[in-house]
């Protein structure tokens, strides 16, 4: 197609698209203003219906729980793709030496960094578990808690170095955590079918508002998502950092 023909086509399309776009923008509510009544209904009825106080967790794991299942599968397939493409047939045996870049000095790790990471690592892990377990009560949940747990394992890498990190955080554990997380979500949705309810319907005892074991299915799904997110994020980090290592002598 010649340049003139493309320009003619472009302006012809513009002639249709611009008025339609302006027509669509007229009548929109102004930016930053509230439009949805859906959210208001969830806010007003959520605590009574499901005995949880965090409405975001209620929407993610109950009202729109099925969407989160799809989201879990997207995360799972993306992590699987990363692992398959990067792990290859190299296996887990990688040396402690990072790839040398000319003219860049290699500094040793300062004791302050190691000390701080040793203090912060367990506390970050504990905080991640706390955020996950209180997902239905306070801001937080599986997604946030899982990311914090993954960050806690990265602190081992920061403080102790790559070999120690690989020794503690095994790839097989991460694969297991990722698969178990998605599996828990899937099976927790299937179990209500046995009782004659619909998929992912919250039929478990709801417990008392404000207690750790409230919300029925929501804490279980939270834990599943936390496992999947922590395993997924951590294996992505491990696979990428493996690329920065010199191969061992016995490897090609």
């Amino acid at each position: 197609m010649s340049r003139t023909a493309r320009l003619v086509l472009f302006f012809a399309a513009l002639l249709v698209a611009v008025p339609l776009g302006i027509l669509g923008l007229i009548g929109l509510p102004s930016f930053g203003h509230h439009v949805s009544t859906y959210g208001d209904v969830v806010d007003a009825m959520g605590t009574d219906l499901r005995h949880v106080t965090n409405m975001v967790a209620l929407v993610t794991f109950d009202v729109r729980g099925f969407d989160t299942l799809g989201e879990e599968f997207i995360l799972f397939s993306a992590v699987t793709g990363v692992t398959m493409l990067l792990r290859g047939d190299r296996g887990e045996g990688t040396s402690a030496d990072p790839v040398r870049i000319p003219h860049r000095r290699r500094e040793g790790r300062s004791e302050a960094v190691t000390g701080t990471a040793r203090w912060l690592g367990p506390m970050t892990l504990l905080f991640g578990i706390y955020v996950t377990l209180h997902g239905q009560l306070t801001p937080g949940g599986g997604f946030q808690g899982g990311s914090i747990i993954a960050a806690a394992t990265l602190l081992i890498y920061l403080g102790e170095g790559y070999p120690a990190w690989r020794k503690i955080v095994r790839s097989v554990l991460l694969d297991l955590s990722e698969a178990a997380g998605v599996g828990i979500y899937l099976v927790a949705g299937l179990v209500p079918l046995l009782a004659g309810a619909t998929y992912l319907e919250n039929i478990l005892p709801l417990g008392e508002v404000g207690s750790l074991l409230s919300g029925g299915l929501i804490p279980i799904l939270n834990a599943g998502v936390a496992l999947a997110v922590a395993g997924g994020f951590c294996s992505i980090a491990i696979e990428f950092l493996e690329e920065t290592r010199e191969p061992n002598e016995d490897e090609t």
């Binding site: 949805s36 959210g39 975001v56 929407v59 993610t60 989201e71």
Partner: peptide, 13 residues
């Protein structure tokens, strides 16, 4: 409104 927050939460991950 919890709906946009929940949508964005999953979208980030």
């Amino acid at each position: 409104d919890p709906i946009p927050q929940a949508l964005v939460l999953t979208a980030i991950v």
